[in-house]
Design a binder for these strands. Structure first.
Lengths: 250, 250
DNA sequence: CTCTTCTCTTGATGACCATCAATGCGTGCC
DNA sequence: GGCACGCATTGATGGTCATCAAGAGAAGAG
């Protein structure tokens, strides 16, 4: 279950990291003192794909932030099949702070670099340092919005709509906004077909058909199963059935 | 669009409010001083169903908490149809703190009682009062989990599975946990068929069929379109295709 | 009371998609 | 090299659901 990324997906630019890099964004939000305190407790580690970081039902002793790579939140259904309920991209947080057990597995889909904190220490720091707390709060509010964005995306009845929306969200994350509509853009999808299917609430076969339908219509060009060029962005937006702003994206 | 609650749905016990009442829960989380400060800025108001509180794209000047009733977060698609991307139950917050524009409409589905704060004042208080900030943070983390819960629910391929999951979540919210499996339980659904359909990513007709299929199987009893008795909880859980814990649920 | 209106419900049909099954392609192992 | 394995793809089929259409009940207006 939950096939990890093949060697394909691990290569190339990480599509979730914008030009400036999220790492600096994450760290520069804090003042020098806060950063120093954080640094003292931090532990940076690199994990390979398919590493389980937190298990459903357990109370994790670590709070972690993604620096690079993609993690997935998954749930196991009685049928034995795994469902992805969320993706964690660079700057996203995992682990439970000030509360109980985790409701999902947290698992790396690609090789990932993480910055981890001991939970108790991190909680103490948050309680003491109002600035860290504020940054955290803003952060979590953003994640909440993103999660609700996915709810909308999944409500799109047709699979091809969801695929189109996914690609557009991917693009807007890449550059911090949608690029010029007329400039073709190369996209790298860091997920296997099976993982992406689980995330979009469908099956790999249907996903494959949707991608190739977009290609047949001349909207995208498929370089390999993990790389696409978006040839016709307006058409892609139209297929998605949603009104993405020309610039703001999400 | 977005048909509001009829007089049916407004009547009876609010199914989202547990025995103890959420209001006290919300307020008692704060210390006396914090509460006093909050009280000074607060404005409690009651709005009828179908009231739009925040418009998509606007920067709201109010932060509000739901005391009773149900609000919905909605998005309008290019097709003109409205999609519900989240429900707000008592204790839930709306409005944007420390950040930009709202990405959804916030609209009351039933008559609702709200406690509102001026955004700037509330932000100042949060910046000053670490305790308020902490409560808020914990709160938002919980909402994030709930949002991800919905992602899972919507991934359930069949509509009847989603309906079953919805009813179970409703039950576990009602009493703070699932009751004894053998005791029938009366549920009040505070949403019109159209609103619920939008929320579950389907249409009213399909929803109606799903409810009556559950009734035909003897799993629930339909008193009226807004009231049900859950007769066979284990069977309901089985239909949902998920493993709700016998007690804690989520 | 009667008419209007709104919502829920029920029926019929076609589109979409999950599923089963088989083929093609690349990678790693022997 | 040759083989096995994993993943993506493609084909065929049945089930589920969106949609169009129509009927039933209840609430409110006059």
């Amino acid at each position: 279950m939950m096939r990890g990324t093949t060697s394909h997906a691990g290569q190339g630019i990480d599509p979730f990291v914008p030009a400036g890099g999220y790492l600096s964004l994450l760290l520069e939000t804090f003042s020098a003192e806060s950063r120093a305190r954080l640094d003292g407790m931090a532990r940076v580690r690199t994990v390979p794909a398919k590493t389980v970081l937190v298990r459903e039902g357990e109370r994790p002793n670590e709070i972690g932030f993604v620096l690079s790579g993609i993690l997935a939140l998954t749930r196991f259904l009685p049928s034995g099949r795994a469902q992805i309920s969320g993706l964690l991209a660079p700057t996203d947080m995992y682990g439970r702070i000030f509360s109980g057990r985790s409701r999902h597995h947290v698992e790396s889909l690609s090789e990932a670099r993480l910055i981890c904190f001991d939970r108790a220490h991190f909680e103490a720091l948050v309680a003491k340092d109002a600035e860290v707390e504020r940054v955290l709060l803003t952060h979590v509010l953003d994640e909440l919005d993103i999660a609700r964005e996915w709810v909308l995306l999944l409500n799109g009845s047709k699979v091809i709509e969801r695929v189109a929306s996914f690609l557009i969200l991917l693009m807007s994350r890449h550059g911090g906004g949608l690029p010029d509509a007329r400039a073709p853009m190369t996209l790298q999808v860091p997920l296997s077909r099976e993982d992406l299917a689980s995330y979009l609430g469908t099956r790999p076969e249907t996903l494959s058909r949707a991608f190739h339908e977009l290609a047949d219509k001349g909207i995208i060009h498929i370089t390999d199963p993990y790389r696409f060029d978006v040839v016709n962005l307006p058409a892609l937006i139209k297929v998605s059935g949603r009104d993405f702003a020309p610039d703001g994206g999400d």
